[in-house]
Design a protein around this nucleic acid. Structure first.
Length: 310
DNA sequence: AATATCTACAACCGCGGTCCA
DNA sequence: GTGGACCGCGGTTGTAGATAT
């Protein structure tokens, strides 16, 4: 059982004085002993009813604190480690749809907690918005994510998969792509793959909105109610047809190599033209490593100029 | 080597919703 | 209907470790 070693010396934490107050409740980092107590209690009695659980387990913690510790850290199915490219893509996609609905987004990333996704968003995505001197909720920044970063993520996922193919599939457009076996357990639905479908969405250049009516996805299933991730589509913000994803209902997303022009006329082609440097290939938000620098100075400058002219 | 700054993330807080007596 | 207990969510803070100066 993995235990956070940071907790081993936490008795000197700034909140330790709380254990001396009238309520005798502890705050701050959890100790190894507390973790084990909680784990053992839940193993025997199950989770839920957190306030009484805290009392019965003999933990001098609030029920809230016990719940948080269990759900965000101790639960056996919590995934630890780096956010994968597919997860990054999914987070961007879902956040564009739902905003800061972290728990809802987390439902589609098995093993990831809302807290972890929220932290990822704040530390990585908001950092880039700050670099671009624009608000993370601004349309400009959202467009940048949608029409530049997300296609780049897809491209990088493709590149990664090409290096480690686990299967080969042919798109309806006749092109060949590799697929991954990344699975997502969608709430209320069967586990499914998502990255392969999303990649398909990017690689079929034969698609047009006109020929896409009443289409089904590459697995022959109707997609009118659920998108490629198996997520119910309940608005018309994006539409997904055949092997292609159309964002905003009016912005066909062409090949990642073609440059992206959104409905404000922002042309990112010049940015992509600079993309072949080694630094640029370090991709958005990193891969969990330190290579988190999507933007070089030129990129940032160009985007800032475009934003200021809008 | 020392100090300052940054980053990542665990944990807390407040609020609103739900349940139940 | 009402009030208290509880739960879950989203925002925020604190801090250890990493990195820069």
């Amino acid at each position: 059982m993995e235990v956070n070693m940071r907790t081993s010396n936490n008795n000197k934490s700034s909140n330790s004085q709380s254990s001396e107050d009238e309520s005798d409740l502890r705050r701050g980092p959890w100790t190894v002993e507390e973790d084990l107590t909680l784990i053992n209690y839940i193993a025997t009695h199950g989770e839920g009813r957190w306030n009484s659980l805290a009392r019965c387990a003999g933990l001098k913690r609030t029920g809230k604190s016990c719940r948080l510790r269990w759900l965000n850290y101790l639960r056996p199915d919590v995934r630890r480690g780096n956010i994968t490219l597919e997860e990054q893509l999914l987070i961007l996609e879902l956040h564009s749809r739902w905003g800061n609905r972290w728990s809802k987004i987390a439902q589609y990333l098995p093993g990831r907690t809302d807290n972890e996704i929220k932290n990822y968003w704040r530390t990585r995505v908001q950092k880039h918005a700050k670099q671009l001197k624009c608000d993370v909720n601004s349309k400009q920044f959202k467009d940048t994510m949608r029409y530049l970063w997300m296609p780049r993520l897809v491209e990088r996922i493709q590149a990664a998969n090409a290096g480690h193919p686990t299967a080969t599939a042919t798109t309806s457009g006749g092109s060949t792509s590799t697929t991954t076996t990344t699975t997502t357990a969608t709430p209320g639905h069967h586990a499914m793959t998502y990255s392969d479908n999303f990649i398909h969405a990017q690689v079929n250049s034969n698609f047009t909105p006109e020929n896409s009516a009443n289409s089904s996805d590459s697995f022959g299933t109707q997609i009118s109610d659920f998108d490629y991730y198996g997520i119910p589509i309940n608005n018309n913000q994006d539409y997904i047809q055949g092997d292609q994803v159309y964002y905003g209902g009016e912005n066909p997303l062409s090949s990642p190599n073609c440059g992206y022009i959104n409905n404000q006329g922002m042309d990112y082609q010049g940015i992509d033209a600079n993309y072949n440097t080694q630094e640029q290939q370090q991709w958005p938000f990193g891969v969990g490593d330190t290579n988190d620098s999507l933007w070089n100075v030129e990129d940032i400058y160009m985007l800032q100029q475009q934003f200021s002219n809008m």
